[in-house]
């Protein structure tokens, strides 16, 4: 018998269940794109029939880090840039959990960039949502890793001399097996993409364009957007790495020319998730480790009987 019945029980859930009864009112600014992520995630969780208590939502620091304050589930609001290592360990400890990590573009592509690369490389079975508003919002408007070249801010008074990060291309190179971009202004597509990302067995990366009406007034509100999977102007095979790569490069380039492209860019259904790989080489148990601590019948090995002979 499982010690975690929220995981094993099959109950239908309403999207309202994901709205906390206390402090349900987000502190984000009016018009903030973060509302779009929250709404899409609630819609996706309901559609998937997930129990609030089989989900663990790990966030970083910044406006995006408040996501799990306004979403009813188990939550871990971590430290700046470190949502991924905490999230992926929780998944290894209890693969029954549905694990979602989220953070901003500074959190994920800047300070946490190392974890982003390696989590994608390892293909953990989890979803990573990056709130990309091309700015540091909560600290009041500094240039971020995705800010366009020439972007002026208090910390870059002469405009940024740096080209922005190419998050989709980087994700593909690193090894993510599901990569998409969506936008807060496109809630239906966003919800559908989150559903697919959670269902995908591997590392799903969603670059989520979230407009910051307060600190990034110059930026477009990401409208009008084009769904590349629906548009006849963009024909490509999203299961083909080379074609996906080209599509990503174009998307990242034209964003700063005023064209907002969104959609699914890359899907690899063949690649085993990290948990599968690790089990295949005998370095991860078949049963969730977390269950073992609640199983009174489990016989725990002790060193005296297992490893001590080699020292005699």
């Amino acid at each position: 018998m499982s010690a975690f019945s929220a995981i094993s029980e099959d109950i239908e859930h309403d999207r309202n269940e994901y709205t906390p009864g206390v402090e349900p009112q987000p502190t984000w600014c009016p018009g903030c794109g973060d509302f779009g992520v929250l709404k899409a995630l609630k819609g996706a969780a309901a559609e998937l029939g997930l129990s609030p208590e089989e989900m663990l939502v790990c966030t970083g620091i910044g406006c995006s880090g408040k996501l799990n304050s306004y979403f009813e589930s188990y939550g871990f609001h971590t430290i700046h840039g470190r949502s991924l290592p905490i999230a992926r360990a929780a998944k290894l400890a209890n693969p029954g959990l549905t694990v979602v990590a989220a953070g901003g573009d500074g959190d994920g592509y800047g300070i946490g960039g190392n974890h982003f690369s390696h989590s994608a490389r390892e293909n953990h079975d989890m979803t990573y949502i990056v709130f990309n508003n091309e700015i540091f919002g909560l600290t009041k408007g500094q240039t971020s890793p995705t800010s366009p070249k020439g972007h002026k801010s208090k910390t870059q008074p002469h405009g940024s001399a740096k080209d922005p990060i190419r998050p989709l291309s980087q994700s593909l190179t690193a090894g993510a097996s599901y990569i998409a971009r969506t936008a807060a202004v496109n809630p239906n597509q966003a919800k559908d993409i989150i559903v697919e990302a959670i269902e995908h067995d591997g590392f799903s990366h969603i670059d989520f364009l979230t407009q910051c009406p307060t600190w990034n007034k110059d930026a477009k509100q990401y409208v009008p957007y084009i769904d590349i999977n629906d548009s006849e102007d963009y024909e490509f095979d999203r299961t083909n790495r080379a074609e996906a790569s080209e599509m990503m490069y174009e998307t990242e380039t034209v964003l700063h020319e005023g064209t907002v492209l969104t959609g699914r860019y890359y899907v690899d259904e063949e690649r085993p998730s990290y948990g599968q790989e690790k089990r295949a080489i005998g370095e991860m148990p078949e049963e969730p480790l977390a269950e073992r601590y609640f199983d009174d019948d489990h016989e725990w090995d002790r060193v005296y009987d297992t490893f001590l002979d080699r020292h005699k």
């Binding site: 290592p85 290894l92 400890a93 959990l97």
Partner: peptide, 21 residues
Amino acid sequence: VEDEIAAAALAIGASHAGVKA
């Protein structure tokens, strides 16, 4: 893992999820 920040964070994540880490 990739660095010691991740290493400590993973141990915390696993412990949070119910494993001695």
